[in-house]
Design a protein around this nucleic acid. Structure first.
Lengths: 155, 155
DNA sequence: GTTAAGCGTCAACATGATTGACATAATCAC
DNA sequence: GTGATTATGTCAATCATGTTGACGCTTAAC
């Protein structure tokens, strides 16, 4: 159980803040934009009885075919138990295939089946169209700048 | 129960896609950037036994003091049942205050207590510092462009 | 042959969301 | 005033996604 503290909380006195209206606007934009970003795929996935967890697996296995389970866990930053159920379901649906690695047979390599690759393409296609639609409304310089800022935001 | 279809799925044949490597990169950037965006506040909230749901309530009540429950539901796009538990908890912790509206006493107006405002400021401060740190590494033109693109992405 | 690595699985639990049904108080329409 | 509607709350069942802990299995490494 998490330690719930309701008493006055011992926190470092907050440095007088740089929360300008512009920064506030940026925070809100991250929230709403991400929500819009996920809503398209979510609907498509729901039709098949899948969720966002399955999407992330499909996505990263698609990007790195033959990725090991451990590496996928690192990428997703979740526990193996959290991965277990959605990965199993993707196997049952024949969307993801699992094979022991040749060199080290403890390692399971994950790849997309043809159907898995097709679904992944549909999902990415949706997001790509959404991004490309937005990109079409701004200049090439805006896009380059957007990338620079997003990269800076990843730390 | 969701209708689970494992048979070949009746989907419109996907239009040959515009998923360029650049678009892929943009998709990934959204995912990782949002994850980085939420990790700071999440840690601070966990110390107090709160989660992201509480954060969103604190945030929007902070931005629109006196907001009605129904309006908050609209903003968050969740059901009243989903709001109930975290809101109740915020009241128990004396972070959010609830008062019947003067004109229409069915309407409950939500405001932050002093402690609630302080916590909200800390959380926003964290995100603001993160954003400002990133903004410091790019030009003013990049920031303006970033805003334009983010706005376009909200549709 | 023992140890360690990579992975799987069972269990218990927390959180955040859903839908459905019903309850209550206050306002509005007549 | 009565009756419908609105704003909100609440109980219940369910789902998805995550956690930690404990234990087991197969394979590789020493």
């Amino acid at each position: 159980m998490i330690d719930i503290i309701t008493e006055p909380h011992p926190v470092a006195p907050s440095v007088p803040s740089a929360i300008t209206p512009d920064t506030r606007a940026a925070i809100e934009q991250m929230y709403f934009t991400y929500r819009a970003f996920t809503s398209g795929p979510d609907a498509l996935l729901a039709e098949r009885g899948l969720g966002r967890a399955h999407h992330r697996i499909l996505y990263f296995v698609g990007r790195q075919p033959g990725i090991a389970v451990g590496a996928l866990l690192e990428t997703l930053q979740i526990s193996k138990q959290a991965l277990s159920a959605p990965l199993k379901r993707l196997q049952e649906f024949s969307l993801v295939e699992v094979r022991a690695a040749d060199q080290d047979r403890r390692v399971r390599r994950l790849t997309l089946s043809a159907a898995g690759a097709q679904l992944e393409a549909q999902l990415s296609e949706q997001q790509a169209q959404w991004i490309n639609t937005a990109f079409a409304r701004v200049t090439a310089e805006d896009i380059a700048s957007w990338r620079r800022v997003m990269h800076a935001l990843e730390q």
